[in-house]
Design a protein around this nucleic acid. Structure first.
Lengths: 127, 127
DNA sequence: CTCTATCTCCTACACATGTAGTTCTACACC
DNA sequence: GGTGTAGAACTACATGTGTAGGAGATAGAG
């Protein structure tokens, strides 16, 4: 299956995270966890969820008159897609250029690199 | 000055790159380099540039009846801002988590890591 | 069986973005 | 000097997104 090309906004990510965390959730639950803190109307959350469904990122079933949502994509897929997209547009598709950037910006330090290198060695399957 | 919070679309990035590359460019030049290849109308490019100006990312002066555009933000600033934004939304602000992701996804291999580690060592100022 | 709270469904609006047409102006050429 | 052409300026439209209200359904309280 060709991993879809998904790019989500902050808002959409926040909604999806509830679903990813719980596996399934009603509009009310999502509103409780995401809408309330951001002072969004109940219907706003409902609309957002409907649109995610239209886009095929979640599916819903009616249970006791309530819509219950489940994600149809994994967090991994989305993360992969979004990172990949950024690498493509910002670093001509070269992921190590992104790492270099991170290093140069001092976003990650020697210890981080070392940790990652070890992680790589432990996996020992790449390259 | 607080480094702006810029996030650009592919299209906008393409336009900006012409300006970053040349330092300055007329609408015609940008159209030539970005619009033509993508089969965009001249006016489309003009509109896009106008909007970038409205957003404060470029400024223009009239020279011999033509608008000449110059970037007001550097590519670095934009790259930094966009990477930072991705790290925030996708990796809770932890850049090394992004690197881990890259490693786990096999986007970067041992050699890349090694190269980056050496780069770090050469700079030798971090951490 | 009716009333109320809750939830879905539909509609709406503002803003950003990609897309482009129309109009007006200015200069260049015959 | 009229005419055509290049470019600016303005307007327009579709789509995605954040935002929400109002109408209609529905289930539980009495």
């Amino acid at each position: 299956m060709p991993s879809k090309d998904v790019s989500l906004s902050d808002m959409q990510l926040a909604l999806m995270r509830v679903l990813w965390g719980a596996g399934r959730a009603t509009t009310a639950e999502v509103h409780e966890r995401v809408g309330k803190p951001r002072q969004l109307a109940y219907t706003t959350v409902a609309t957002l969820l409907t649109r995610l469904e239209k886009r095929g990122l979640v599916k819903s079933v009616k249970e006791q008159g309530e819509r219950v949502f489940k994600p149809t994509v994994t967090e991994s897929e989305v993360t992969r897609s979004m990172v990949s997209s950024l690498v493509d547009t910002l670093f001509r598709g070269d992921p190590s250029a992104l790492v270099s950037h991170l290093v140069n910006e001092k976003d990650i330090d020697r210890d981080d690199i070392e940790a990652v290198r070890k992680l790589l060695a432990r996996r020992g399957k790449t390259g």
